[in-house]
Amino acid sequence: MRRISAAAAARMILTAVYTFIAVLMQCSVFPHLRFLGAIPEFTLCVIVCVSCFEDEKFSCVLAVAAGFLLDTVGGDAYTLSPVLFLLAACFSIILSHRITTTKIIPAAISGGTALIVGAAKATLILAGKGAAFSAVIVKTALPQLLYGLIVLIPAFLLTALHYRVFRGSFEQSRRRAREREVI
C-alpha cells in the first residue's frame, strides 16, 4: 500500500473541508444569492477543479462523498449526485492527464460539460414532475448553467490557490526525503 506523506494528508483533509464548505455554501449561502432565480452547482465546480489537481483515487472518493452529502443536506429526493460527481471527476482526471501544460483548459471543459449534464438532470427531474419542458429550460436549466459557469471561475481560482500553497510544502518534504536518502 502506498504511503501518504503528512503534507499530502493535510492537503487532502483541507481539500475535504474545502469541499464540505462548498456543499454548505450551495445549500445555505447560494439560495440567498440567486441569479435569475437559479442556484449554481458550486460543489460540482469545486469537484471538477479539485480533480484537475488532486490524486485520482482521492478525487473519486471525494466526488462520491460530496455528491452524497449534497443530496443529503440539500434534501434532494433523487440521490443522483454521487454518480454525476464521480463521472465529472473522471472526465476532469482524463482531461488533466491529456492536457498537462495547464489546468485551466481541462477544468473549463470538464466543468462546462458537467454543468450541462447537471442542468440536464434538473430539467429531466422537473419535466418528470410535470413542468413544461421549455419553461424548465428557460427558467431553471439555462440560468443554472450560466450561474454555474460564472462560479466555476472563482472555484478554479480558489482551488488553484489551495494547491499552490500546498505545492511548496510538497516540494519541501520531497527535498527532505531526498536529503535523508543521501545521508
Partner: peptide, 29 residues
C-alpha cells in the same frame, strides 16, 4: 488510463451507483 480499469475505481463506481440507487429508491418509497 490504467486507473479506470483498477479495482479501486470499479469499486468506487459501483458504490456510487449503489448509493444513488438505494437512497433514491428509499426516498421515493
Amino acid at each position: 488510463m490504467k486507473f479506470f480499469k483498477s479495482k479501486f475505481f470499479i469499486i468506487t463506481l459501483i458504490a456510487a451507483v449503489s448509493v444513488a440507487a438505494v437512497f433514491t429508491a428509499m426516498s421515493l418509497l
